[in-house]
Nucleic acid binder design. Structure first.
Length: 599
RNA sequence: GCCGGCGUAGCUCAAUCGGCAGAGCAACCGCCUUGUAAGCGGUAGGUUAUGGGUUCAAAUCCCAUCGUCGGCUCCA
């Protein structure tokens, strides 16, 4: 496949960014320009502007861009010396800073390191010349003015060079495509994402809520959301039991000293809540479960015959997130991990690691999350944020890559993505809208066992150090539920639906019959609601459909007489009348098999 | 945390230039007794996020705080 960076679309977007900068400078001649690269699905350009932008400004700039594009200006490249460049951009302090950097050969305009000899080049279209390494289209006529938009997304603040200690600039986002149809399709995708937004569906479907008085970033699970989450927990818990895991339970606070030993405290101090004093000792809310589990291990002497130990806990942890970073259920200040720690011998490492990968893939497939990729996160060169010796890191990294290869996973290796105590294998799923979410993680850890002096007695009667595998499949339940809500657009598979069956009597005289059906279904474990409210059947069908309830069972005189129900699916499909017993057989099969379909 | 937008009934939204806070849905009460995506009528629901200021008069203008949305950054 053609690399995005080499595609025509990339050049179009990069060039449109320049056109936008020209239009902005025409409107605000005193504006300072920073950088304007193409990004996934579009581009942006950062400006230092004399005043905040309004919607009218954006519309005006967009119109001006179309005019510039239609005029058909060529993009002219030229190479300049650093001094020439400084002269050219003497009124542009951000460009000067970039030029200085380029001259030093350190970084390119994206702030990335480069070893190549740096050639400073500019591109000029019409009246606008920008420091840029390109590439660009040959002429603005290659841009379709009707496939460009900058009004589709609000401008936003962005720090110069992403550094929160530097100037706050105004970032204008744009998108550009080759045809207006592609633009329309993209905008439609954004609309669909809005419709699927878990925050909106969470409210519409009564799953969860937030309260200012409780505190931001602290989700409150309503009954329908709680049952959904509980079903996911039960599903995994049962599966884990069948795979030799044992549950453990640990409290929500611990002494600060625990995290000093584990090494978490210094490394993650800015995402932890302030410690509090209890009887002269410092405690804190637990930011992670592993040190607790480690101490369960330490509570007795283990034999190699005990290993592997697989201990799992749905452990709630608390981490400080800056207020501006909170987002629905995906970024919260307290969340529950489906955490587990495996204590293994070196000989068991690969098999146990593969066992975790197998569980991950089983869960994904069960939920219809079939589009995912793996990522091996290793430490980066500098590495002052890591603990442990090189030998342990090398062993752990080799083990992960060997296991991933054996499993036949396609994966990428990315530097700087490791945990502070070890390398890891992450699973990233793509949801129904092709958005990526990092969900599962498996980590190999030689360090915590060392820091906590864990041991087991080997066959040789000597003390040995076990290796720990940290793993989470859902990651955080909150976040996972959010991803599922958006993936399914709120229409959960029947086994996960908070309400599986809505009973709709056609007239009041059918309510008694429906009560009997409800009792029968509930006794079999179905989650059932009877809509005995005033109103027409049509309205009740509409209501149940909007609540995305899988099955609507409707009964009037004909059904009562026949001991039947008329079955309608949320998709609108009418399965017609069937004896209640037949519906039960059919629905049980769908639910028990965790089918992703309703028939 | 920072930049910008927004905050009106449980939900979705209206209220012209600063001039009587309103509608639909939901809730509640009735009527209708219904056959596959909204039957009809009524009742109730508000310190317009909070606090201060300007004004004869503030949902509307100004300041602060809180929340929220879009980003930046980070995410064991």
């Amino acid at each position: 496949m053609e690399r995005y960076e080499e595609s025509q679309l990339y050049r179009i977007r990069h060039s449109t960014a320049h056109v936008m900068a020209q239009a902005v400078l025409e409107k605000f001649p005193s504006a300072k320009i920073a950088i304007g690269p193409p990004i996934e699905d579009g581009f942006y350009y950062d400006f230092d502007l004399p005043r905040p932008l309004t919607e009218e400004d954006l519309a005006e700039i967009e119109q001006r861009m179309r005019v510039i594009i239609r005029e058909g200006h060529p993009f002219a490249r030229r190479e300049v010396s650093a001094d020439e460049a400084r002269d050219l951009f003497q009124d542009q302090p951000y460009k000067i800073e970039l030029i200085d950097g380029l001259e030093a050969g350190g970084v390119d305009e994206y702030g990335e390191k480069t070893d190549e000899a740096v050639v400073i080049s500019t591109y000029k279209q019409d009246t606008f010349e920008d420091l840029c390494r390109g590439p660009h289209v040959a002429d603005t006529s290659e841009i379709n003015p009707d496939a460009v938009s900058i009004t589709f997304k609000a401008p936003a603040g962005a720090y110069w060079r992403g550094d929160e200690n530097r100037e706050m600039l105004t970032r204008i986002y744009g998108t550009a495509w080759q045809t207006p149809d592609q633009l329309a399709e993209y905008l439609e995708l954004l609309e669909e994402a809005k419709r699927r937004d878990h925050r909106k569906l969470g409210q519409d479907l009564d799953l969860f809520t937030f309260s200012q008085e409780v505190g931001k970033g602290l989700p409150l699970w309503k009954p329908k959301g709680a049952i959904l989450r509980d079903l996911l927990e039960r599903f995994l818990r049962d599966e884990q039991l069948g795979r030799g895991y044992e549950p453990v339970i640990t409290p929500h606070i611990a002494r600060v000293a625990l995290y000093e030993t584990s090494g978490h405290y210094p490394y993650y101090s800015d995402s932890q809540y302030s410690p509090f004093e209890v009887e002269g000792d410092l405690f804190m809310l637990k930011p992670m479960n592993c040190p607790h589990h480690v101490h369960i291990y330490k509570s007795e002497l283990h034999s190699y015959r005990d290993l592997p130990l697989r201990w799992a806990e749905f452990g709630t942890v608390y981490r400080y997130e800056k207020s501006g970073e909170l987002h629905g259920l995906t970024r919260v200040r307290g969340f529950t991990q489906d955490d587990a720690h495996l204590f293994v011998t070196p000989e068991q490492l690969e098999e146990e690691f593969l066992g975790v990968v197998d569980l991950i893939e089983f869960i994904y497939n069960s939920l219809g999350l079939t589009d995912y990729r793996a990522r091996v996160g290793i430490r980066d060169a500098e590495g002052d944020k890591y603990v442990g010796d090189d030998k342990g890191w090398a062993l752990a990294t080799e083990a992960i890559i060997a296991a991933a290869d054996k499993r036949g996973l396609t994966y990428t290796v990315e530097e700087g993505e490791a945990a502070f105590y070890g390398p890891k294998l992450d699973f990233i799923i793509r949801d129904a809208l092709k958005r990526e979410w990092q969900i599962s993680t498996v980590q190999v850890d030689y360090n915590l066992p060392q820091r906590f002096e864990l041991e087991y007695v080997g066959e040789d009667n000597e003390r040995h150090q076990p290796i720990m595998i940290h793993r989470a499949l859902y990651g955080s339940l909150e976040r996972f539920v959010a991803v599922l809500i958006e993936h399914y657009a709120g229409a959960f598979p029947a086994w996960l639906s908070p309400v599986q069956v809505r009973l709709i009597p056609i007239a009041d005289r059918h309510v008694d019959y429906m009560n009997g059906v409800a009792t029968k279904l509930r006794a079999l474990g179905f989650r059932v609601e009877l809509d005995a409210s005033q109103g027409r059947m049509g309205g009740k069908i509409r209501e149940a459909t909007m609540q995305k309830i899988p099955w609507m069972l409707i009964a009037g005189d004909r059904d009562v007489e026949a001991g039947a129900v008329s079955v309608r699916l949320r998709s609108g499909e009418d399965l017609g009348a069937m004896p209640v017993a037949n519906f039960i057989d059919y629905a049980r099969q769908i639910v028990d098999s965790k089918s992703l379909e309703l028939q």
